[in-house]
Each structure stands twice: as C-alpha cells, then as structure tokens.
C-alpha cells in the first residue's frame, strides 16, 4: 500500500511536469509562426494634400491569394484619399509596388494586387466563423515595425455576429499597429482580418477606439465571397434602407412605411415583418438585420400589406449616394 502511494505520487508529479513542459511553449508565438508566410508590411506614400498626420503610413496586410498576388488589408491609410504609392514587403524579403483594386467600405477592407506572385502559403487556414465562441483566445498580429518580428496582442472573443453579422469583436488591443493584420485563434487559425469598424462606420470614431478593448475582425465567410467583386474594381458599400418609416422609438415601433408612396412594390402603410428570412417586429430589428447586406444586393422581404394579407417580394438595396430622392 505504501508503495502504491509512492507510485501514485510520482505519477501525479509527472503529470505536473508534463503540463509545465507544455506550458513553456507560447501559444501566441506558435500561432504567429503559422501565419508568417502570409503577412506583408505595407507602406503608403501619401500625397501632400492628404489629411493624415503621417506622410508615410505603415500597415499590415495578409496575402489571400498568392498566385494572383492578392493582398487584403484594412482601409486604414488608404481611404478616403488613396496614396501616391503603395509598397509591399513580403516574408521572402522582396519589396514590390501594389495597386489598389477595390474597397469594401462596408467592412473597411481593401484588396491590393502585386504584379509578382507570392510563394505558395499552404498551412494557413481560416476558422469557421460559426464555430467561434465568446471567451475563446484571440491573438491580434501586426507588422508595422518589423515584418520579421510581428507585434502580438492577446485577448478573448468578446462577441460574434457584430454589426449585422459582418464582424466578430475582441478585447485584444487593436490599433493602427495591427489594422489589416490577422486575428488568430489559439491554434493559429485566422479568425478574421482586423479593421477599424464601428456601428455608424464612422472611420474617425473607429480609429479613436483603438486599444480600447473593442476591436473588430471580419471573418473569411464575409470577405472571401467578395474578393472577385473587389478584384473587378467594384467597390462595396453598406446597404441603406431606402424607405422612411413611422416615427417613434426604433426599439418598439414596427417598420411601417410612410414614404415614398411607391418603391419596388412597397407602399405607404405596409409593414416590413421579415428580411432575409429573419422575422422583424421593430425598426431596431430591421436595421440589425439590414447590417448584413451590401448596397446592390437584393433581399427577400416579408411584408404585411396595409390592405391586409402577407406577401414576399425582393427588394434591391441601395447605398446612401444612390438612394432615391424622397419628397
């Protein structure tokens, strides 16, 4: 019996030793190692007129398509005034110029392209956004100082499906130091691309939030399907709701149309009760559901007619600039 206890104790001690050995490895560093091949350091040479405080902006980018030389980064330093020149330093030490292909203003992402393809970057993978859980570890990565020594900030996933579902939220420090860089999970998988998002998508407000414990990353499900559109030079904007609705607290007021008199088959007095398959009972819910859509997208709408009866129809969403004039 005495012997047994000794054996047990040594087994326990061994267990402690083994876990400590594992603990000596650093999850964040390991994760960053996995994405190093896709990290690029971007330099934007600004025109003199540009309203930025700095004449050069250094930012982080992620190679999303090595064969075609495609890089995804955030709008930070690129919007509203595009720079005079963009240079890209990649993990192999090559520097080349890049072109701005398209801007996703809705997600604050920009697609850049380089003439020379990048080496293959197998081994980097994206997380399935549906499996991301609040509380799970996050590692935000940027490389504005040294490409070969990325900066790391860590935190947790604060929430998923933010801003209409286009982004997840983290409390890791997110700032110009890592905008455009990847947000990683503890296994080195890319959870999303860090961008300066905010509810009203007011770029200034968003940048002011840096390091506040509220950072956003756009997951692959959101940006991959839009790469071909950006590659074709088509910019993306957030959808705006084209109709005026009954006054009152958005929390409790139903989405009853008051203007214009007629638009795409909708009229005054009609109530929107569903959008994109989601039931909505208030203007608050309507706007929350709308947050997922881009201008130009058509979305199925469920409507309760003023005259009674429910119908479904497709509504084409517009952005602020192309919004139809209302009387």
């Amino acid at each position: 019996m005495l012997l047994n206890i000794r054996v047990l104790r040594s087994i326990a001690l061994l267990a402690v030793a083994v876990t400590r050995l594992f603990a000596a490895e650093n999850v964040a560093r390991e994760a960053v190692e996995r994405v190093r091949p896709v990290l690029v350091q971007l330099r934007y040479v600004a025109s003199e007129q540009q309203a930025l405080a700095k004449s050069t902006v250094v930012a982080t980018g992620v190679i999303v398509q090595p064969e075609q030389g495609l890089i995804l980064t955030s709008t930070y330093g690129l919007v509203p005034d595009p720079p005079l020149a963009i240079t890209v330093l990649d993990a192999t030490g090559q520097t080349q110029a890049a072109k701005l292909l398209g801007v996703d203003h809705h997600r604050q992402l920009v697609l850049l392209s380089c003439a020379t393809p990048f080496p293959p970057t197998a081994g980097v993978s994206f997380a399935n956004a549906r499996e991301v859980r609040p509380g799970q570890a996050t590692i935000a990565v940027g490389c504005v100082f040294e490409l070969d020594q990325p900066t790391i900030s860590t935190g947790i996933v604060s929430a998923v499906n933010r801003l209409g579902g286009i982004a997840m939220q983290t409390d890791a420090a997110v700032s110009p130091t890592n905008y455009g860089g990847p947000l990683l999970g503890s296994r080195g998988e890319v959870l999303g691309i860090l961008t300066p998002l905010s509810p009203e998508n007011d770029m200034r407000a968003a940048v002011e939030w840096y390091d506040s414990g509220i950072g956003f990353a756009v997951p692959a499900e959101q940006f991959l399907p839009r790469i071909s559109q950006l590659q074709a030079g088509k910019n993306i904007h957030a959808a705006q709701w084209p109709l005026k609705m009954a006054k009152g607290s958005p929390l409790s007021t139903p989405a009853v149309i008051t203007e214009p008199a007629e638009l795409q088959g909708l009229g005054i007095g009609d109530e929107i009760i569903g959008i994109g398959g989601r039931r909505v009972s208030s203007q608050w819910q309507l706007h929350a559901a709308l947050g997922a859509y881009d201008a130009g997208q058509s979305v199925p709408i469920a409507v309760r007619r003023k005259t009674g009866g429910e119908e479904s129809l497709m509504l084409e969403l517009t952005d602020a600039e192309t919004k139809p004039a209302t009387e």
Partner: peptide, 25 residues
C-alpha cells in the same frame, strides 16, 4: 484559386485537430 481558400474555411478546424498543442493554455 479563390476556391482553394474557400475550401480552407471548411477544413480550418480539422487541419489542426491532430497538431500538438500546449495542453494547459
């Protein structure tokens, strides 16, 4: 090529399932 990445989305979780990771963190 873009499809390759799309696939990676689906496989992401699986591709690391077998890799060794520090147990404690």
């Amino acid at each position: 090529a873009v499809g390759y990445w799309l696939l990676a989305v689906g496989l992401g979780a699986a591709s690391f399932a077998g890799s060794e990771l520090p147990a404690q963190p």
